[in-house]
């Protein structure tokens, strides 16, 4: 809360959504995280369209969860998905790294999702590679019942990295990146389950950034946290925006307002409005959006 207000204030007025892609936005928050020269980080300049969703229809068995979604998400920006429960925002998020594949009876009936211009639903796409590039943080923090150190290195070890000096370095970097280093540096061998809820969630974020993804999907990362822990995570998101493209699903409109550059409002499986966060909250174009952000329903 404390830090939230200035962020919104400091965010420079962006151009309307349609043209914002060309326009590099100004980064108000100083990033004190040393930017890792990950493969993803270098390829997409700030503000360029990274994720391009077009005409997406999505089904759970016979019921349609998403209707004709068209959305362009920019690199190195924080994009928030808001909307009432069951509006399809989490579903869309899980489409982006194909976590929905794990649920029986789901299918993309129409449309494409392109990341870097590559349709991720193409048959020759390797889901495993995709998920390495598109990380995810879940609603309920889910550290593995392993040590903090092992939690962070899990993804790296999967990719065959065994150099312990390198691993140590990345663990520190990731934990610092997740603003957790100072709290856990003396007990890296302790179980990740022993941390508090907010720490667990930041551990999960650290775990996600350790593999240097390009996009980080956050599915209501703060819904199970108390306000103090929430503030810390939000702060963290601000720090990460310089290095990663972040898409966050949230229930909490203030959170969207505080953290995100752009906001998409969903209702009943449809994308109602997508614009700069400030515009959404101050002068929404759509009456439904206005009703929602002003708290009249949802």
């Amino acid at each position: 809360m404390v830090i939230a207000a200035p962020i919104l204030m400091d965010t420079p007025p962006s151009a309307p959504a349609k043209s914002s892609a060309e326009k590099p936005s100004v980064r108000p928050m100083p990033s004190f995280v040393p930017s890792a020269a990950g493969p993803g980080a270098s390829t997409a300049p700030i503000g360029k369209t990274l994720v391009d969703i077009s005409h997406l229809d999505f089904f759970y068995n016979t019921s349609q969860a998403l209707h004709d979604i068209n959305l362009k998400i920019e690199a190195k920006n924080v994009t928030a998905f808001i909307g009432p429960s069951g509006c399809g925002k989490s579903t869309l998020l899980r489409c982006l790294n194909r976590m929905n594949d794990l649920i029986d009876g789901t299918r993309v009936a129409r449309g494409t999702i392109k990341i870097h211009g590559v349709d991720i639903y193409q048959p020759d796409v390797d889901v495993i590679e995709l998920r390495k590039r598109v990380g995810m943080v879940f609603q309920k923090s889910n550290p593995f019942p392993k040590s903090i150190y092992e939690n962070i290195t899990f993804g790296l070890r999967l990719q065959g990295m065994n150099d312990s000096a390198k691993l140590d370095e990345i663990v520190e970097k990731s934990l610092r990146g997740a603003a957790l280093w100072d709290e856990v540096k003396d007990r890296l061998g302790a179980s990740g389950l022993g941390l508090s809820g907010g720490q667990q969630q930041r551990l999960c974020i650290a775990r996600a950034i350790a593999v240097e993804p390009e996009v980080i999907l956050m599915d209501e990362p703060c819904s199970a946290l108390d306000p103090v822990a929430t503030a810390k995570v939000e702060e963290l998101i601000q720090e990460l925006r310089s290095r990663f493209t972040i898409i966050i699903v949230t229930h909490n409109m203030q959170q969207a307002a505080r953290c995100s550059d752009k906001t998409a409002f969903f209702y009943l499986g449809k994308l109602i409005e997508f614009a700069d966060t400030r515009d959404i909250f101050t002068k929404p174009a759509n009456a439904q959006t206005e009703a929602y952000v002003s708290g009249r329903f949802g």
Binding site: E129, R131, N142, G155, V211
Partner: peptide, 15 residues
Amino acid sequence: VPKGFREGSLALGAT
């Protein structure tokens, strides 16, 4: 075994 263990691991690019 909680679902989160599986999702967390898969989201990190584990097969």
